[in-house]
Write a protein that binds this DNA or RNA. Structure first.
Length: 336
DNA sequence: ATGCATGAGAA
DNA sequence: TCTCATGCATA
């Protein structure tokens, strides 16, 4: 389960005054010109027989077979369509209108009607295979001071919700960490933002003009993720006060009709464009199969998988990292 | 809106 | 090496 505990531990809210979003320099290194190479030889599953891998391969093979070979009663393929659904299935959702998950899944492979078995067992509240790694760092991303506004004598942040999956669990006192509160805020935020006629990107940039200590600009991506609650719990909590501040400021200005005329928009001259590798569907399915049996493959395993799928090892490694992050993000929401 | 990626900090 | 916050590029 997630464990927002011990974050910002013992006053050590390391907030390097120079470390805030929107800082680093562009480090494009045109990593690799190679794109996705859809398994060339078709020898996707030859050789390499070591436990998990072969098991995963079987899954992957089946999956692939279902899509390119022919009809097969495919076994439970862990369909990791874990796209967060920030819904607290609990009893009385206090304040907020029911917002249907607004994730517009555009180009996703149409493989959702696979098997309700695995999906259900996962979406319920499965704490995922994570044995709760005892490390949580909430490193400096400048806005620490701000998010700091919630007391706690200097020790740990807030007591972790000692309940797990109890529908009627206790409502901890900390309103700032309450998922329902966050959800409600995100909803309000988006609504009011739109009312102001401001885009997500605008908000991101405007944040820098807020001059809040240690708060720089954020990207459209982040604002979007905040609104759609696709950030980690801690991330949501950290960003809330900042966005709230912006919202209030923006509405205040709107009311006064005073639109700041000075536009500091110094359009950054064009730079190298980073290219995004795109993993082809077949490879992706294989990766998902591997992930199902071993979310955290060793370096060698990764190398093996990479070679099999004819992908760069780093690409595979990053894929697993991102996969873990996704499966984990807002995971706690399911418990609330 | 989301996939793949970077980089800092912690293990 | 992993996690986590975050971003660029793109569907």
């Amino acid at each position: 389960m997630y464990s927002p505990d011990k974050m910002k531990s013992g006053g050590g809210l390391m907030a390097p005054p120079g470390c805030f979003p929107g800082r680093y320099s562009p480090t494009y290194r045109s990593s690799d010109p190679r794109r996705c190479v859809p398994n060339p030889s078709g020898d996707l599953f030859g050789g390499l027989n070591d436990g998990l891998l072969s098991r995963a391969e079987a899954l992957a093979a089946v999956d692939i077979g279902k899509h390119q070979s022919g009809p097969q009663p495919g076994p439970p393929l862990p369909q990791l369509k874990h796209d967060m659904v920030y819904h607290h299935g609990v009893g009385g959702p206090p304040p907020h209108n029911t917002r249907p998950h607004q994730m517009g899944h555009h180009g996703m492979e149409g493989i959702d009607m696979l098997d309700p078995l695995t999906s259900s067992s996962m979406t319920t509240l499965a704490p995922m295979g994570e044995a709760a790694p005892p490390h949580h760092q909430l490193h400096g991303y400048g806005m620490n001071h701000v998010m700091n506004h919630h007391h706690h004598g200097g020790g740990l942040a807030h007591a972790p919700p000692a309940h797990l999956g109890h529908p009627s669990a206790a409502l901890h006192p900390d309103t700032d960490t309450d998922p329902r509160e966050l959800e409600a805020f995100a909803e309000r935020f988006k609504q009011r933002r739109i009312k102001l006629g401001v885009t997500q990107a605008d908000v991101g940039k405007a944040l820098a003009n807020l001059k809040l200590p240690g708060v720089g600009a954020l990207s459209q991506s982040t604002i979007c993720r905040f609104e759609s609650l696709t950030l980690s719990h801690n991330n949501m909590i950290a960003l809330k006060p900042i966005l709230q501040a912006w919202l209030e400021e923006a509405e205040a200005q709107a009311k006064n009709k005073r639109r700041d005329p000075d536009a500091p928009s110094v359009l950054p001259a064009g730079e190298k464009k980073r290219k995004r590798t795109s993993i082809a569907a077949p490879e992706k399915r294989s990766l998902e199969a591997y992930f199902a049996v071993q979310p955290r493959p060793s370096g060698e395993k990764i190398a093996a998988i990479a070679e099999k799928l004819d992908l760069k090892k780093n690409v595979v490694r990053v894929w697993f990292c991102n996969q873990r992050q996704k499966q984990k993000r807002m995971k706690f929401a399911a418990q609330h």
